[in-house]
Design a protein around this nucleic acid. Sequence first.
DNA 1: ATACATCACAATGTATACATTGAGTGACCG
DNA 2: CGGTCACTCAATGTATACATTGTGATGTAT
Lengths: 243, 243
Amino acid sequence: MAESKGSTHTKRATYELRQRIVGGALPGGTRLYEVALAEELDISRTPVREAMSRLAEEGLLERARGGGFVVRSFTYRDVIDAIELRGVLEGTAARIAAERGVSADEIRKIRGIVAQIDTCFGAIDSPVDFDRYSELNATFHNLLADLCGSPIIQREIARVKSLPFASPSAFVLGHATSAATHRTLVMAQTQHRAIVDAIESREGARAEALAREHARIARENLETNRNGSDSGQPLPGMALIVD
Amino acid sequence: MAESKGSTHTKRATYELRQRIVGGALPGGTRLYEVALAEELDISRTPVREAMSRLAEEGLLERARGGGFVVRSFTYRDVIDAIELRGVLEGTAARIAAERGVSADEIRKIRGIVAQIDTCFGAIDSPVDFDRYSELNATFHNLLADLCGSPIIQREIARVKSLPFASPSAFVLGHATSAATHRTLVMAQTQHRAIVDAIESREGARAEALAREHARIARENLETNRNGSDSGQPLPGMALIVD
DNA sequence: ATACATCACAATGTATACATTGAGTGACCG
DNA sequence: CGGTCACTCAATGTATACATTGTGATGTAT
C-alpha cells in the first residue's frame, strides 16, 4: 500500500518511513525490524536498511545497542529545548552575519521576502494566506542562515529545523483564534524586519538577541496549543512526542 | 593489512576508515568507492556501505549526488566556525544549567574534576602532565554538557566535538613553548572555575559568556599553530583541512 | 525457589550475484 | 565542425542465501 514517491526503492522506503514516523503510525520507542518492514513495503532488506540509515542521519531514528533501529522519542521538554536551540543557532547566524558583514544584494534579497510576507496579511480583517506565509517564512529563515556564510552553522541549523516541531513554520499551522494569530504574525513580521535592520547596521548583539527571541514565538504557540484545546489543527510532528 | 579493532567487519571498517580520514590518508574531497575499499579491507561491499553510512552520521563523509560518499573537506574558516559553534553550544548548556539549576551533587562532581586538573600542573617550573590534563579537560567539558540536563543540547555538543579539530582538548596537544602553554592552561583553569561558580550562583548570562570565551582558547591556539611553526606536534585533525 | 547451563530461534551481519543507472566515448550525420 | 545518438562500462542499487550472535525459553541441579 501507499507506494508514495521516489525513483529508487531506498528513496521510497525513506519517504514512507518518515511519513509513518512523523505521522504517528510509528510512535517513539518503536523498534523497527528489517524483515517485517521489507515484507510490508514489498522490497528486500537492503533498501530498508539503507532507508533506516538515512533516517538515523536525519535524527528520526536511533541505532539500538546490538544493532537495529528505534524510533527516536521526544519529551515535551525536548521540544522546548529544540526550539531554544534553533533560536540560539539562528541568533548565532544573525550575529556572525552582522559582525562579518553581508553584501547589499543579500540584504536586498531578504528584504524582498519580508516585503512579500506583508502581502499575505491583506486588508484589515481579511483572511491571512497561511500557506503562502508559511512558505515565505521558511524562505526567510533559510536566507537568514545563509547570511552568515558559514556551511558549518548552516548545516546545524538545517539539522535542528529538520525536526518537524522545531521548524520555524511549524507554529503557523496550529493557529488558534483568528485574532490572536493575526497579532502573532504581525509581531513575527516586526521581528523579521528588526533582525535584517540589525544585521545591516552591524549590530551583532542586537541581531542575536532578536533572532533568539523570535524563536520563542514557536514556544509560546506550542504552550498555548498544549494547554487550551482552542486550536484548529494539531501542530506538525506532535505525534513524535511521547511525554 | 591493518586489521585494527572491532568485533564485526562493519566496526573494523568504520574504525579503519575514520583513522585514514582524520590521519590524512584520505584527504577531503576524495570519493570513496565501495568495491575498491571492500577489496582493500578484504571484506564485502555490505559492511563497507554500512561503515560509510555511520561516518556520514558522524559528519566525516557526505553523500554525493547520484550515490556514493565523499570525504568531507573543511576550510580554515570552517574550523574557526566549528570552534565558535562549540563555544555557543557550551555557552547555551552553561546558561540553561544556571537558569534551571543543578543539584549540589553535580556541582560537587564537576568541582572535583577541576580540583584534579590543578594537580596536573605540579610545582612551579615542573612539567605539566599533558595527557592527564587532556583527559580531565575532556571530562570537564562532558560534565558541563550534562549539567543542562537536555539530551537535545548534549547531542549537538557531542556532534560538534566529534570533529577532531573542534574538540575541547585538541589545543592541549599542539603546545608551543612551555611557558606560553603554561600560561594558557592556567587561564583555562581559571575559566573552568568561573563557569562552575556562575552556574552555581544561577548567573546564566555570565556562565554563557564565560563558556563562549573559553572556547576561543582553541581558536587562539589554532592561529598560533598556523602562523608560527614554533609548535611541537601538529594539531589533531589538521589533515582534514584543505584550505 | 533460585541459579545456572543449554538450546533454539529470531534478528542482524555478511557475501555475492544480478539489475539498473549514468557518465563518458566513439561513430555517424547534419 | 558540431551535435546527437547509441554503446559500454563502471559504479551503485537490489535481492537473497547464508553466517553469526544475542536473547529468552526450558530444563536441571542445588
